[in-house]
Measured scan of single mutants.
Amino acid sequence: NQASVVANQLIPINTALTLVMMRSEVVTPVGIPAKDIPRLVSMQVNRAVPLGTTLMPDMVKGYA
């Protein structure tokens, strides 16, 4: 199973992502692939993302 990107903490709306905010985990449904973590750094979330939430492409500005 492919690992997805999961929030390692509460990420407030419009926050630029950093490595410490994200972890990889095998979850259902599948979200953004963990291999894309380096690409996500500095991108902003367009909503508040609670701890443990799988990041989906529509949550990150400029990803999709």
Rank of each mutant, 00 (worst) to 15 (best):
Q2V: 14
A3M: 13
S4Y: 03
S4A: 03
V5Q: 01
V6C: 09
A7M: 07
A7F: 02
N8H: 15
N8Y: 04
Q9V: 11
Q9S: 09
L10T: 12
I11L: 13
I11K: 01
I11Y: 01
I11W: 01
I11G: 01
I11P: 01
P12V: 05
P12H: 08
P12N: 10
P12M: 13
I13H: 09
N14F: 08
N14T: 05
T15E: 07
T15V: 10
T15F: 11
A16C: 15
A16P: 12
T18K: 06
T18C: 05
L19S: 14
L19I: 10
V20F: 08
V20R: 05
V20P: 09
V20L: 09
V20A: 09
M21E: 02
M22K: 00
M22H: 00
M22R: 00
M22F: 08
R23K: 13
R23L: 09
R23H: 07
E25P: 00
E25M: 04
E25Q: 07
E25N: 05
E25A: 08
V26M: 12
V26P: 08
V26E: 15
V27H: 03
V27P: 02
T28Y: 13
V30F: 11
I32H: 00
I32T: 01
P33K: 05
P33T: 06
P33G: 05
A34P: 15
A34S: 10
A34N: 06
A34D: 15
K35Y: 15
K35L: 15
D36R: 03
I37W: 03
I37N: 01
I37Y: 03
P38H: 05
P38Y: 08
P38K: 05
R39G: 14
R39L: 15
V41M: 08
V41T: 07
V41A: 04
V41D: 04
S42L: 08
M43A: 07
Q44S: 08
Q44T: 10
Q44D: 04
Q44K: 13
V45C: 09
V45H: 02
N46K: 09
R47K: 15
R47I: 14
R47D: 12
A48P: 08
A48Q: 14
A48F: 09
A48Y: 07
A48T: 11
V49R: 03
V49Q: 02
P50D: 15
P50R: 10
L51N: 10
L51E: 14
L51F: 07
T53H: 15
T53P: 01
T53L: 10
T54E: 01
T54M: 04
T54L: 05
T54I: 12
T54Q: 03
L55D: 01
M56H: 10
M56D: 06
P57H: 09
D58N: 09
M59T: 07
V60S: 01
V60M: 04
V60N: 01
V60W: 01
K61R: 11
G62T: 07
G62P: 05
G62K: 10
Y63W: 12
A64Q: 13
A64K: 10
A64S: 14
